[in-house]
Design a binder for these strands. Sequence first.
DNA 1: GTCCACACGGACACCGGTGTCATAAGCATC
DNA 2: GATGCTTATGACACCGGTGTCCGTGTGGAC
Lengths: 350, 350
Amino acid sequence: MAKQKQDEGQAPKLTINDIARMAGVSKKTVSRVINRSPLLNRETRDKVEAIIRETGYVPNPQARALALGRNFLIGLVYDNPNVQMILSMQKGILEALHGTEFELVIRPVDRGSRQVMEDIQGFVTRQRLFGVVILPPLSENDALARMLDEQGCRYVRMGSAVLDDPEHMVVSNDREAVADAVRYLISQGHRRIGLVAGPHGFRSAQERREGFELALAEAEIGLPRSLIAQGEYTFESGLSASESLLDLSPRPTAIFASNDEMAAGVLYAARLRGISVPDELSIIGFDDTPVTTRVWPPLTTVRWPIVAMGRAAALKLIGTAIGEDEDVNEPSMFSSTLIRRGSVAPPSAS
Amino acid sequence: MAKQKQDEGQAPKLTINDIARMAGVSKKTVSRVINRSPLLNRETRDKVEAIIRETGYVPNPQARALALGRNFLIGLVYDNPNVQMILSMQKGILEALHGTEFELVIRPVDRGSRQVMEDIQGFVTRQRLFGVVILPPLSENDALARMLDEQGCRYVRMGSAVLDDPEHMVVSNDREAVADAVRYLISQGHRRIGLVAGPHGFRSAQERREGFELALAEAEIGLPRSLIAQGEYTFESGLSASESLLDLSPRPTAIFASNDEMAAGVLYAARLRGISVPDELSIIGFDDTPVTTRVWPPLTTVRWPIVAMGRAAALKLIGTAIGEDEDVNEPSMFSSTLIRRGSVAPPSAS
DNA sequence: GTCCACACGGACACCGGTGTCATAAGCATC
DNA sequence: GATGCTTATGACACCGGTGTCCGTGTGGAC
């Protein structure tokens, strides 16, 4: 009764002092309980923990952040226009963070902007971020990784291939996945296979292209430059890039597009010309985004486990440090699967 | 030189004390400059501001948060599966927050879960959030709004119609938008128009349905129950729900689907039955998501300004408080536009 | 010339945690 | 029984800001 005025305001707003008083110990001891210090008497720990549980006390994150010089925030940094990927990553990260004391802070930056480094540095140091997850293509920026190292900020780089920095990477093996997809086309009898490549400056675009070339080389199929069109990972670019391929004579009997949006563009271009898919033209995309099942015919594509990779990235981040004794050994290399739908068939006339 | 050791560690990590020393004033004076206190000598203010600018000093957000009992974080809370909407909202909010000291923290909650309230309350109070933006359908939860009021947490509710709580709402006028879309169908000569409604429990579904009914009533067109199918805002649900409509005899000559995903499902179902769109069936969707232009024919749909609404919500949040003398009078009601693409034509045989 | 109001600046406590170090208690050793 | 060592706990300063309150200097009114 004396000085206690619990139910006066709205929230109890318990502090560490309140807990200490109730438990008849000092602040520091409560702090030790919270931080799982090993040099604590069992009984004391149990007593304090009981009170914490009863009262529902939660330490103030701001105070901890101030004292520790480190926040319990994970940043998600990207310069990527790919909506589906961003959201799937977000989903995976949030799954991993769920139930922990970590929160996710979003930070898009302008692709190509000069201030990207300053932006991110400011973000990271100001907010005293615990760590950041970086999405491609920004994740391919080694200078950024170096800067984060210098700032002492943990980070995980998502990517399509292992870079120099394996311990900070969570990757899918795009090259092999695409090679598999193209091998499938070849096994169906296709020999004139076109490529709609992704934009320069994207490692994933390069990897996918190499996978494409690899499969063709294996089968000793030549690859004239005319069978390669340059896209920008957008629907429109896929649409216009594929026109040069569809104008060829003889026309390719199959096209691999480096992502689903462009594959949808190829499909659209084919329809505009009255080319029947898959009878006259087979198409394979990459990403397994929802659009693949919305169009007709549904697109055969390569699925990579974005959500799982996001989860792994977050676990890697929070696992390596505060002994959240989760399964830190989550694999850092993920493999993809070919999803067979309706856009591939053997070529009509060989 | 004396005690200054700037370039020793990685980051300068300037504190308010450093600035005070350099300016030859006290901490408090610097604090006053930062917080734009009006009772300050012009010269002093200028001097301190100059030093802050030179040194690039930024106050530690954690310390401010602790002292003020309030963080400079905006939460985005949703229980919604609609990827496109979430990301567009995020984009708008981030645009508004760009260049301010605010950051965006993401918080999805399980739709329908019993713990939603506790979850959000914990989130809000623990992080001492400055405010939250709530997306539908969670934004329709009045109990949540009440709880936030009690917690003294600012909030903005996104929605499809003004609820009891106008000052906290940013809304689009779905009813009128749908009525317009249906009026357009009627003007094209359609009389048998089917509806694929959205799920129960979504205000937007109800509003869109009412708009549909309104337009029909205006034109004195009857609406038998058989012309209404129930969907769940997903592609699959649109696909299966539309089957009952397409089985009718006489078949509806047009279908309004309450969102684009379901409209894509209707289109898909039509294709499966060999029904030609738009010749034999007109379709209108809602949202103007990318899928509308990926399918064939491209879907006529209703576009609502999600990004702008997200921006407005964030401005409303940060504008009302700390005299960020931005344009706080951003409108809170947004109107939608009918986007005419290729999925509507006059009925073939009237 | 004196007094007062007022504008400004500084000392100090405080927000709610954590790190450092000292100290008390417990126990084996000699 | 004194010594030394380990283990459990607490006192206190500190993280980097902000609020309160008081002291000082200045200008205007009389």
